[in-house]
């Protein structure tokens, strides 16, 4: 995993406003999407994020992920 599962959940949540308003932004450049197309595009984006998150880690990333298992638990005893 490239990011922790918690972080992935947050990233996915964060794509929601982007997907919802992407349609408005595209209208400025004269691309009209229907609701369905917009939703499909959203699914594709979400899919890409998930695929990326589950890609095997690169070597240099590994160190940052050491705390993956203990996220939020140890430093403040939560």
């Amino acid at each position: 995993m490239r990011i922790s599962k918690g972080a992935l959940l947050v990233v996915l949540a964060f794509t929601v406003p982007l997907i919802v308003e992407l349609r408005t932004v595209l209208v400025w450049v004269n691309i009209d999407l229907s609701v369905l197309e917009s939703a499909a595009l959203g699914l594709v984006i979400v899919g890409l994020v998930v695929v990326w998150a589950f890609l095997p880690e690169r070597e240099d990333d590994r160190q940052e992920r050491d705390d993956d298992q203990t996220d939020g638990d140890v430093p403040n005893g939560n």
Partner: peptide, 12 residues
């Protein structure tokens, strides 16, 4: 940002 405790509901 990746190092933040995203699994902790209090933080997130």
């Amino acid at each position: 940002l990746k190092a933040l405790p995203w699994r902790d509901p209090v933080f997130t």
